[in-house]
């Protein structure tokens, strides 16, 4: 078998989930190639050549790939597939991968497998359904297996020691007359990124308003943690949606997850229950979050969080 990993990157750097996806690809067995499509993305190609396990890198450097639009990337991937006949095509289960891979799969007339958490064999994959309340093992009979990978379920591959060769991808000169990319506004933060942070502190409806999240930011800065939120806090307009942890938001699995004022709805638990240690602060002793927390503190968060910040400052 041979697997193609569609690299996610910013043109300047690889997105961390690409490394988790490479690990998943090596579990399929057989060769692993990567495709890097972008504009002035040579730095990313260089980064990838050092990743062990990757044998070949297909490079598609073209203005058409500005914004990484699926309407431009899909014909490119179809061309690469025609030439190399990969048995598997994978990408990270991010906004990028989730947009692109189903479009590609439909063009290849195969059923993609979304957000896999384990690979049992070349054709059998494990994924969560019903917001993580059930785990399904599925077998694909399609000639090409197209899947996206949950980053937290696979270790990141190392970033040195590899000796991959790069070459130009076939049919790079694609035209996209269907869509154009205007721009991005990314939340600026010096804190680590939510899905790769070692520690995540999340606030829920118990925070009462957006202003009160300052308390969590202060604690996060002290702990070098990322700050997340429950869907309830996002729905209430306290914080932006990109902070949402849960089945419909981001899936995180840090070393330490601190849930503050979060009751622990099923859909939130789905996004964080694979964390190594879960701590919860909630004033309701019956809150479901305590059923999954390793350390639970029944307390008023407006007292407990500043106390926690002070206690950690002293450490």
């Amino acid at each position: 078998s041979s697997t193609l990993v569609v690299a996610e990157h910013t043109n300047d750097a690889l997105t961390p989930i690409t490394l988790n996806t490479v690990t998943a690809a090596t579990k399929v067995g057989g060769d692993v190639s990567c495709l890097v499509a972008g504009t002035n993305c040579s730095k990313v190609v260089e980064e990838l050549t050092k990743v062990p396990g990757v044998t070949k890198i297909l490079v598609a450097d073209n203005e058409s790939f500005k914004g990484f639009l699926p309407e431009a990337l899909t014909p490119l991937l179809v061309n690469a597939q025609k030439q190399f006949n990969f048995t598997h095509i994978a990408a990270g289960a991010t906004a990028f991968g989730k947009s692109l891979l189903p479009r590609l799969a439909a063009k290849l007339d195969v059923s993609p497998i979304s957000d896999i958490i384990s690979i049992e064999s070349e054709d059998t994959f494990v994924r969560t359904i019903y917001a993580g309340n059930a785990i399904a093992t599925v077998k694909s009979k399609d000639a090409v297996k197209v899947f996206t990978v949950r980053g937290t379920a696979f270790e990141a591959s190392p970033t040195s020691g590899g000796t991959a060769q790069s070459e130009e991808a076939p049919g790079v000169d694609v035209k996209n007359e269907l869509s154009t990319w205007e721009g991005q506004s990314l939340s600026k933060s010096d804190r680590p990124e939510l899905t790769s942070a070692e520690t995540v502190i999340s606030g829920g409806r118990g925070m009462k308003n957006g202003e009160n999240f300052k308390m969590l930011y202060e604690l996060a800065d002290l702990m070098n943690a990322a700050v997340g939120a429950s869907r309830a806090a996002v729905d209430a307009g306290y914080v932006p949606n990109d902070m949402q942890v849960g089945q419909t938001g981001k899936i995180v699995a840090p070393q330490l997850y601190i849930a503050v004022g979060i009751s622990g709805a099923i859909q939130h638990l789905a996004g964080m229950k694979d964390s190594k240690v879960i701590a919860a602060i909630n004033k309701d002793p019956e809150a479901p979050i305590f059923q999954v927390a390793d350390v639970g503190l029944v307390a008023d968060l407006f007292k407990a969080v500043p106390e926690l910040t002070e206690a950690l400052k002293k450490e």
């Binding site: 059930a134 093992t137 599925v138 077998k139 399609d142 350390v295 639970g296 926690l308 950690l312």
Partner: peptide, 30 residues
């Protein structure tokens, strides 16, 4: 269909840990 369900299972159960009384105890546990 080209995708076949092999099996569907319950997710692994996460055992609840301990409740602590104070922030100090929480820090100690962590």
């Amino acid at each position: 269909p080209t995708v076949e369900t092999v099996r569907v299972e319950d997710p692994p159960v996460r055992e609840a840990g301990q409740k602590v009384e104070t922030v100090e105890d929480m820090v100690a546990k962590l």
